[in-house]
């Protein structure tokens, strides 16, 4: 059986592409780092891949809002390609800046006209960029294919604009995949457990198919045991909590 092909999208300001590629490679995928200009000029085509990832970074400096300029570019230049990609069963993963981009294109939570975006990501309540580790609980009801079998995770966040703000009317229909919690899994713990003030402690969401998933925490930054901040005192696990997201994605794509 042929290997799963994963495209990691690069744009000016992308900066988590290499470790994300490494995570997918470790999970058994063949990875290409592709610059957005290559997709636009068609030297590379989305249809040749099963998984597309928009990794973390500060694309175009996050000017006018995180992910805004790249979202604009994707929507106008690649909108049709992405639609076809997902119609054909492709998986899309957005991490951190990728979450911001997917929300601002309207690809998440679903393909709606941008003028009616129901959801956005905005400045953290602290007003600051913060890098810290967070406890996450996965929603068992979610259709998300990336988090199958995952109950809890401990992952780092590093962002200044990770606060999910949503029109209250859309919240009940949203497929929330991950919630910020405290160490015991309590969702009412507040800051800093919810590091940005996200409504309903939302850390990650999926679309209705479960195949488009985005999250603010960085699973690619915890794929080996010694990335854990306390491995010296708590012992080193072979794999970090985030690794399963990548193996899940590759496994799913393989079955296509």
């Amino acid at each position: 059986m042929s290997k799963v092909r994963t495209l990691i999208l690069r744009a000016p300001g992308t900066n988590c592409d290499e470790e994300t590629a490494f995570a997918f490679e470790q999970a058994g995928a063949v990875v290409s780092l592709v610059h957005i200009s290559q997709l636009i000029d068609r030297t590379k085509q989305l249809k040749d891949y099963q998984i597309m990832v928009i990794p973390g970074g500060f694309t175009y400096g996050d000017d006018m809002g995180a992910g805004k300029v790249l979202a604009n570019e994707i929507r106008l230049k690649l909108g049709r390609d992405i639609e076809r990609f997902t119609e054909n069963g492709g998986l899309i993963l957005g991490i951190c800046n990728g979450f911001q981009v997917l929300v601002k294109t309207g690809i998440l939570p679903g393909l709606l006209p941008t003028s009616k975006l129901p959801l956005t990501l905005t400045t953290n309540d602290s007003g600051r960029f913060e890098c810290r580790w967070v406890y996450l609980v996965a929603n068992r009801e979610s259709r998300c294919v990336f988090t199958r079998g995952i109950e809890r995770m401990y992952l780092p966040v590093a962002h200044g604009e990770g606060k999910v703000v949503a029109d209250p009317k859309v919240l009940p229909g949203l497929d929330v995949v991950l919630y910020y919690t405290d160490e015991q899994g309590n969702t009412k713990a507040g800051y800093p457990y919810n590091p940005n003030g996200s409504v309903a402690n939302i850390a990650g969401i999926s679309d209705a198919t479960g195949r488009i998933f985005a999250l603010m925490p960085h699973p690619e930054r915890f794929t080996r045991g010694s990335q854990h901040p306390r491995w010296q005192s708590e012992g080193t696990k072979e794999r970090g909590d985030g690794f399963r997201i990548f193996t899940n994605a590759v496994k799913w794509a393989k079955s296509l």
């Binding site: 988590c16 890098c131 810290r132 590093a158 990335q227 306390r230 005192s233």
Partner: peptide, 22 residues
Amino acid sequence: IRQYDHEVQGSSVLKPLVGRDN
């Protein structure tokens, strides 16, 4: 320190903030 990204590149082994409460 919290306002610096000390996890990007996925390479850290010993971070600037350590201990039971990081």
